[in-house]
Each structure stands twice: as structure tokens, then as C-alpha cells.
Amino acid sequence: MAKIIGGLGTSHVPSIGAALDKGLRDTADWKPFFDGYEAGKEWVKEAKPDIAVVVFNDHGNTFFLDRVPTFAVGVADTYNPVDEGWGPRAIPPFEGATDFSWHFVDKLVERHFDPLVCREIEVDHGMQVPMELFFGRPETWPVKVVPIWVNTIQYPIPTPQRCWEMGKVLREAIESWPGDERVVILGTGGLSHQLQGARAGFINQEADRAWLDGIASNPEHYRNMTREDYVEQFGSEGAELIMWLVMRAAMNEKVDLVHKHYYAPASMTGAGMVVLENAA
């Protein structure tokens, strides 16, 4: 069976990628943000994953409102970065963990999930930025990827409980996979931010900091919150945090919080990360 070697949670703000593209890493605005990720990057380097499962949402780049999937799973050989309006970014394409992806899709359908199964598709910053934050900017990515898209744009978005259940099936798929790959799971999005409405610019540092600890030690609390609770505490776009639950549910009940970082604001967003390892 394949092995879950860790769970990562992280923001995926597009400005992070833009800052790297423009060489702003060491400017006053960005240095403290990027410095805090170094520990996570080191962890990944040591942990040597073979497969990265990345849970994220599209931001009106790959999917339009004509057809909105609640959950989509990639089974492609390759995922190219999508043009988000600023032209293509100079980052390498992502190679798909095709066979494992199909196995995961089989398990999902068997367990009464209804994914959109995607064989030819591009990925936006929701996946790009987390990969850059934890893997840097290699010539080619050192892992194969499994993208999981979660609709967080058009209501109804899936419930926190449903995201949690998907994490359970992800774990089952990994543990029933005959390969011996080392798998890292990235739950992405958030932390608190709101881009629309008169409350735009809302950031909730207190809730964000509680999240980074609580997602490790008390995920039940976040699993039991409603979608409305997420919007209220983390802002309309901060509700993206439900995607971390997929990662968290795939981990053990008890985990070690081995790294943690918070910085606000990155662009208009409370931003940060955790590195989790399974405890006994």
C-alpha cells in the first residue's frame, strides 16, 4: 500500500505567484511571508514524496458558470498552467499520477461520490501556488500530482461534512493502492478574506490563528461548522478553508503540528500554512 507521509495546509493567493514572477520575494511586503514557508519547504525536501494530492478550487479560470462541478478529479497525464488573463506563467507543467487517480475515482464512485472525471484540463493558481510554496521552482516537479477541484465559487458549495468524507475515501484509496508511493496531501485556500460586498477586505486574524492550531488538534470543531459559519468567520472567499478538511480527514485522528506560519495580509488575505504528520 501507498503511504500518507504528511498533510500540508496552505493559502494559494495568486499574488504569491505574481510576487515570485516579479522577483519580489525579498521585498519588505513579501519577505516575512516567504521566509515562514522555508521550514515547510525543508520538510518536503526531507520527506521525499512521490505523489502530491492537491485539493483546491478553480477561480473562474478552468471552469465557467455554464457547467460547475461540485467535485472534479484529474486523471490526465499532464496539467498545464492555465492563462488567467495575464498570459502564461513560466512554470513547468504538472505530471499526473494517472493510475492512482483512476483508482481514486473508482473508490469515490464506489463510496457514493459523484466526481467530474477530467482527462484534459488545465490548472490555475489554486494548484500552482501551493506547489511553488512547498517545492520551489524546479525545472520539473519532483512529484506526480492528483488535482481535486472543489466548487467554492457558485452556491451551493459542498458542506464541510462532505469535504471531510471525501478525505476518508482519499485515505482508503491510498491505503488500498498496491504501489509503495509516498503521498503528501495539500489542502489549500484561505485563510480569511473577502473580495466582494461592503465587507470586502475583511480579515480575521484571531480566527485564522485559531484555525492553524485547531485544524491539527480539534478538527471536529471545524468539521461541524456550517458553510454559513465559515463565511461569517473567514469571509466569503475565506470559506475556501473547507478544502483543508479533505486533507485533515485523510490523516490520523491525532497528528503532530510540526510547522506553522501565519502572515497577514498577503494581498487581501490572511495567509499561512501548517505541516502535519500522523501521530499514533
Partner: peptide, 15 residues
Amino acid sequence: MANQSIPDTPLFDRS
């Protein structure tokens, strides 16, 4: 989910 349940926070729903 009902829209406008959270002040100044429109949700992008069907409407």
C-alpha cells in the same frame, strides 16, 4: 443557503 444572511456579504448564488 439563504443569501444576505451575513451583513455586507453577498454570496454568489443562483441569483
